[in-house]
Each structure stands twice: as C-alpha cells, then as structure tokens.
Write a protein that binds this DNA or RNA. Sequence first.
DNA 1: CGGTATCCTTACGGATACTG
DNA 2: CAGTATCCGTAAGGATACCG
Lengths: 134, 134
Amino acid sequence: MTLGHKKGTTMPDTDRCPDCSRINEVLSRVGDRWSVLVVISLSRYGVQRFNALKKNLGISQRMLSLTLKQLERDGLISRTYHPTIPPKVEYALTPLGEEFRAPVTALGHWALDNLRAIDAARDVYDAALEEARE
Amino acid sequence: MTLGHKKGTTMPDTDRCPDCSRINEVLSRVGDRWSVLVVISLSRYGVQRFNALKKNLGISQRMLSLTLKQLERDGLISRTYHPTIPPKVEYALTPLGEEFRAPVTALGHWALDNLRAIDAARDVYDAALEEARE
DNA sequence: CGGTATCCTTACGGATACTG
DNA sequence: CAGTATCCGTAAGGATACCG
C-alpha cells in the first residue's frame, strides 16, 4: 500500500479504499485514546505497575483494567504477576508493542507540537462563525 | 518532551505524566477513527469531494459531515465551496493537515503491517483462556 | 495492591427523511 | 450534490463498592 499522496492519482469513486476498512479494523482495537496513552507511557518510563499507570495517566481503574487486558490480548504488552503480599503486577511492551512505539510516539510528538496551532485554528473558526451570525 | 524510552528513567509516581493529559486532549479531538481515516484518504488521493469521501470510507453521511466540520475547525482540512448547479464541495489538507500526514500514515502502515500479528496474538490469548477454563 | 462487578450517564454513530 | 434534522440503539467510560 502507498499511503503517500501522488499528484496524478485519482480516486476511482466506484470503489472504496480497500485498506481503509482494514486500517479501521486495527485502529478500532489499538487506536483508541487510552491504548495509545498506555503505550506512550510504557514507552517513556518502561515497565510500570498498575497503580503507577493509573496515577500517571489519570485514567479510571475500570478503563485501565479493560485497556490493559485488550492490549495484552492483542500482544502489545505483557503482564507479569508477582504473588507477593501485597501482590505486584508489572506491565511492559512486548516486541510487537516495541514496534508500535515508533508510530505512536510520532503521533504523541505531533500532538504536543501542534496543540497550540489547533487551538488557534479553532479560535479563528469560531470567530468567523460569530461574525457570520450577525 | 522525550517520548523515547530511557533505560534509567523511573516514573515519579507521586506525579502524573504532564504531557499525557495534553496528548490526551489533542487525541480526543483529531484522534478518533473517522478523523484519522479522512486524513489518510485525503493524504492518499488528494482533494476529494463529499460523496467521494463517503463512498471511499464507507462512512455514514452524518458522521462524515460532523467529522469534516471538526477537522476544518481544527485547521487540518480546508473546505472549498463551488456554487454551481449541482453544488460541488472540495476538501483538502491544509499545511497543518499535511504535517499530520507523517504520523498518521506511519500509524496506518503499522496497522496494515501488523494486522495479522495481532490476530495471531489474539488466537493464542483466547486459546490459553480456553485452556485455563477447563 | 490489583483487580471485578454493578450502576448509571453521556457520547458515538447508523438509518431515515427532508432541504437549498 | 452536499448537506441538516430527528430518532434511536449501542457502546464508552466514570463512580462506587467489594474481593483475593
């Protein structure tokens, strides 16, 4: 697949983007906000325990639990249980998760770099709307 | 910010990742599945009309309309209205949208490349669960 | 500590019908 | 063609309480 834009390429609008549905499928699994943030956090700080992630991300216990389970099921993170008292569970990126780091951190960087630009664009847009209303 | 993982870095678990909330904020705007797919489609095929995008992505009219409006508001895409009969509206990436292309296509590529790996991981996980159930 | 279970509210998102 | 408006079912996600 070539995601890059080619000047001469015209969309055959009789057909639908064959890859979009597949990309959609994957994104619907590991592309949600919490999954992305968990991976970013594990990328940044390495192995982390349940409550560390929880505090770190400001995520509810319920959502973290669900997100971690899905990520483990999808093979992106590993869960290591230490049967001590009190118990200790550590989460880390698997090799597949490590591969996910590059695109996900790229996304994170872009988000941080362009937060202001987006806010500015919003202000302009909203102001123009306000203008038109009168 | 350094999203890259550094071996010695320990998460100060008294504090929460300051950037995570900001990344979260951005992702909650332009990180949803439809937004990502619209950007991917515009990246790939360039300028497109409303119905082309609709057929292309297999998205409902309502969601496309909402998604496009938000992306325009956030400054990622431009909307050009041609008052012909019938009317013609063209959507394209803005410079800010163009910058979004790199991380988003990286994500798209990864998604396509690892769809199978994820499916395989799932099968293993589910099989192990089945095993444990007995 | 690291979860599950339950409840409840909001947001997502499709289907359909209508408009300039 | 390119939307908007309405309805309605489902899923996301927080709050709380409880368990091993």
